[in-house]
């Protein structure tokens, strides 16, 4: 594979063509904070925490490293003053949005921010609109049961029209991937409750432990072409 040589924080390195700046920095062991990035998902550059400064002084600019591809000879600064200032303000803004979100508190504290100077409109808000749940549901699960709705003033992650959705298979991947644990997910007495729907969990034919909702097993069956009965036995007993 062809390689591209570039400078990260003054250090020259070669990485495979098609790498993002984030991947290149990781190869070098440079830590760039991220919120909406996940190696298994397509990046969309939402959170802007991974911004880095590229170009030659004085004509430099910030780009998000999770999507920007490596270019031959590119000069990248991952922790310049301009970058740090943007990250600080971004985190401070997120802290005002979701003041009780542990992950945001920790990342902010690492940058020396313990309290936001901005107004907090909802002290109980936890969602930072990173979109990991939406992308997981769409790209990994493949059902697109949830989506972003509205623009800035009322933006939220939801099922269509805020109503329980038939498309949801109750797999809980959205809740699993959520970095601020905001998606309500309850599992008890053989039931799973998520996105306003209650799913009966199927028991393993052999050990009797709960496996997953029927809708999820049927989805697996559809994806793999196996009969759904194939999944009535849990992974441990298979």
């Amino acid at each position: 594979m062809e390689e591209v040589g570039l400078l990260i924080n003054g250090i020259y390195l070669k990485v495979p063509q098609g790498y993002t700046l984030l991947q290149a920095a990781q190869q070098l062991g440079v830590d760039i904070p991220t919120l909406c990035y996940h190696p298994e998902l397509p990046s969309e550059g939402n959170c802007r925490l991974c911004v880095v400064e590229i170009g030659e002084h004085p004509r430099t600019r910030l780009v998000n490293s999770c999507t920007y591809p490596v270019e031959p000879g590119l000069n990248v600064q991952t922790h310049s003053e301009k970058v740090l200032q943007a990250r600080r303000i971004t985190l401070e803004l997120l802290l005002a949005r979701a003041p009780k979100a542990k992950l945001i508190q920790e990342l902010a504290a690492e940058m020396g921010i313990h309290e936001s100077r901005f107004k907090s409109e909802d002290p109980y808000e936890l969602c930072i609109l990173c979109g990991l749940c939406v992308r997981t549901c769409r790209e990994i699960v493949g059902v697109s049961a949830i989506s972003m709705a509205n623009r800035t003033p009322g933006k939220l992650v939801t099922t269509p029209f805020l109503e329980p959705s038939d498309a949801c298979i109750g797999c809980g991947s959205c809740a699993f991937v959520c970095p601020t644990e905001v998606i309500p997910y309850i599992e008890k007495d053989g039931k799973r409750i998520i996105w306003g729907r209650e799913f009966e969990l199927v028991r393993c034919n052999i050990c009797g432990n709960y496996i997953a909702p029927m809708a999820q097993l049927e989805h697996w069956a559809k994806l793999t072409g196996e009969p759904v009965e194939h999944y009535f036995v849990c992974r441990d007993c298979r």
């Binding site: 609109l129 979109g131 972003m148 509205n150 800035t152 003033p153």
Partner: peptide, 21 residues
């Protein structure tokens, strides 16, 4: 702009919210 910002990225969404505040 606050009404019209799509809300996808943090600086624009939360920045406009706080500027307006």
């Amino acid at each position: 702009l606050f009404e019209e910002s799509c809300g996808k990225c943090t600086p624009c969404r939360e920045g406009l919210r706080q500027l307006l505040n």
